[in-house]
Design a protein around this nucleic acid. Structure first.
Lengths: 209, 209
DNA sequence: CCACATCTGTAGTGAACACTACATATCTGG
DNA sequence: CCAGATATGTAGTGTTCACTACAGATGTGG
């Protein structure tokens, strides 16, 4: 019982190429021909390794969120809720306009609406976005416990808000907005988090005294 | 020279049906078969009336923005920049979760990323979104001139911000977020506009005096 | 009632799609 | 060096896609 012929391509490298194709054209817009060419393999290798087109997408999403997870950890490591939001949104302004990648975010570009037969693709993306939102929510819960966020503020709502702004910025980036435009959005967006922070309350109190 | 056989379907009614299909499945996900069935016509009638699939999309977008334009006029008629933002975002929370329509916004669901051959569809949608953004920007310019917004605030950036939040909410709605979740996002988002308003400055000053 | 123009339904068209059969090549275990 | 197992490249498969040829139907102007 031998172990068979070894595969001649690197799965992760190939996934990086597939990721870019899905990122640029979306799930339905990406064709197997484009994917195999970008990956440098033939269809049978793709299907043997990833099952089918949707399996390839999921593998690409896994890789994307894994790479992004490192950065997200840095984001939530910021000292305050306001700084978390700022680091997140300004970082997204950079990432989503990085010429090394397609514009926007794979978790949005991948496919917001799909045809019959791919209905679960949008939910697959939504589930990954929800992971980031949960991470933000947990961080904001901590911020509230630490007295960084006001006692009246809702960490889950704040996380949803930051997540929504990030998604909106992704769509803007993919349709041509430049880095400065995204940074302006981020700057304004952070002010809403700032309004929820105790530091802001103190600043207003400072004006008083 | 006769005037020919009159068309047996109402173009606007048919467009409303097509709009819903594009809204639910996106441009690439919608098939001519689905569209013709929803519109109650056969392919030759569709092509005679709208040219091709992309022509039908553009007509549907025109109708969508025309219907939405009435509402946008009400939005910018709000008395202050803060109220404009609130009316816009809370209204979007309602509209994007209205069970009478597919969830989300056609200008987002229509197609954020498309395959080769439909590359201009995303830009077609972006152009319509830009119209709303321009309308908001003009309103915020007026708000600044009226002393409603701070002298340091940037109306264009504020408009971009509100537009970005609206888009993000659309994506959330389409992936299952309910009305309350969207309202929470709107509530937080409005606070950033509030932070730019002179009324807020006065409120802080009021704490002082 | 006829010439002409436009619409409608049937029934397709070629092209592109996701996916695979099959023969061949390259590995391991014995 | 052979048998079993897995990967690869070529060359397709059937299906679905956007789109249309064509014949018949229904209108207007003379």
């Amino acid at each position: 019982m031998g172990m068979g012929r070894p595969r001649e391509f690197n799965a992760e490298t190939a996934l990086d190429q597939a990721m870019e194709v899905f990122w640029r054209h979306g799930y339905e817009g990406a064709t197997i021909a484009q994917l195999t060419e970008a990956m440098g393999i033939n269809p049978p290798s793709l299907y043997a390794c990833f099952g089918n087109k949707e399996g390839l997408l999921k593998a690409a999403l896994d890789r994307y969120t894994k790479l992004r997870g490192v950065w997200m950890d840095e984001v939530v490591a910021a000292p305050t809720a306001r700084d978390v939001a700022e680091r997140m949104l300004l970082g997204i302004a950079e990432k989503q306009t990085d010429p090394a990648n397609p514009p926007g975010c794979l978790l949005v570009q991948g496919g917001i609406a799909c045809g019959s037969g791919s209905e679960n693709v949008p939910f697959e993306l939504a589930a990954r976005r929800a992971q980031n939102e949960d991470q933000l929510r947990d961080r904001f819960i901590r911020a509230k416990a630490e007295g960084d966020l006001k006692a009246t503020s809702d960490p889950a709502a704040l996380a949803r808000y930051v997540s929504a702004v990030a998604v909106g910025m992704g769509v803007m980036a993919s349709s041509g907005s430049d880095r400065d435009a995204l940074r302006q959005v981020a700057d304004v967006a952070v002010q809403a988090v700032e309004a929820q922070s105790v530091a802001e309350e103190r600043r207003a109190a400072g004006l008083r005294g």
